[in-house]
Design a binder for these strands. Sequence first.
DNA 1: AAATAAAATGGATGATCGTCCATTTAGTGT
DNA 2: ACACTAAATGGACGATCATCCATTTTATTT
Lengths: 204, 204
Amino acid sequence: MTLIESTLDSIAEIGFARTSVSEIIDRAQLSRGMIHLHFGGKDALVEESAKYSSAKYYDSLNGLLKTAGSDPQESVEAIIRSDLSEEVLNKRTVSLWYAFRGESRERKAIAAYSDTRDARLRNLAFEAYLKIARQSGLPEPETTAKDATNGTLALLEGMWTDFLLHPESFDRGAAIRTIFRFLSALFPGYFDLDGAVLKAAARG
Amino acid sequence: MTLIESTLDSIAEIGFARTSVSEIIDRAQLSRGMIHLHFGGKDALVEESAKYSSAKYYDSLNGLLKTAGSDPQESVEAIIRSDLSEEVLNKRTVSLWYAFRGESRERKAIAAYSDTRDARLRNLAFEAYLKIARQSGLPEPETTAKDATNGTLALLEGMWTDFLLHPESFDRGAAIRTIFRFLSALFPGYFDLDGAVLKAAARG
DNA sequence: AAATAAAATGGATGATCGTCCATTTAGTGT
DNA sequence: ACACTAAATGGACGATCATCCATTTTATTT
């Protein structure tokens, strides 16, 4: 575990290319042979680290999502606020995600762990949008919900990239408001610039 | 030039970590000393490669943007369609972008070249949205335009990530339609699911 | 306390890394 | 044809890489 944490620290701080076995064991204060003993080799350790990092992201996200209310628009708001919260989106996590993605093309095992938007999250968003689309009587609710899901996840991805490239000037509030501006246009009555609009005001 | 192309080929195909001097000169069919002679060292060559790659992206984009009509919504449509066209968004370019980004935190020179959405493009989009927001009489047109700009660029970023992680199943048409669904909600009369709505139909 | 098993160590190894430069090859001017 | 300059070569160098295992240390059982 300390080896995995050290590996992640190194990747986050000095990048993939510079993360060597020596660097990792120095950080972990462990001896040279431990990587081979516990993981079989550096590549396997890196893979495990990617897996662990991914699991941690989902754990954080799931923990935050539990606070969501019952209305579909509240679920959506929870996803957005969680994914842009300091706990989930910070310098370390974003460095790790992009480091792993940079190597994901050649290492499929890593690619599998570096997709932040997995099926569960996708499905959660889709179900929420589907309810909203049906309630608001939009034509083709499935297609609308699918587009809204893809768009929301893409918007979140884009905000992450913004954070990666401009961590100092990144404004969480502005990012959230931007997303809700789009959502409030797409589903008026269900969202406004501050987030979800609760049902009493939204529907009859 | 052939050294830069070989460097980019290597990074795109086998990743940053595996791109060595030997790998580059093998691909370029040049001798060992050429990197030192022409660039001073490997790091400088990589930097020049990032610069070149970035310039190529903007050249492609600018070339495609020239075909845009005069209406602001046509400019926006041109940006979106160009950024998701095969010429701009393909396996090679997306591999390169994410490889450079993965190393961008530790190497600021690379970070500068790995931001796809530079000030020019941002400004172009903002001016277009500002016109639309003013024409359609929305309150706070500047804020709306700013959000629309950030959102559009974030959406494009997100679509790129989708392409990186699922290049086989990525659907350009669906990506474009998703973006226009958001825009048509935000600026009804100016966009529909297929793109820009021309002025005769949009205004009085 | 002795015997045995398990965990951890760190030096040795060969491969590969990026750099550098003495030498060779190609190009230009006389 | 010769002298001279510029371009290109590729081997040598020390540094660092990941791996592996003989040895030592720690823990467990008898």
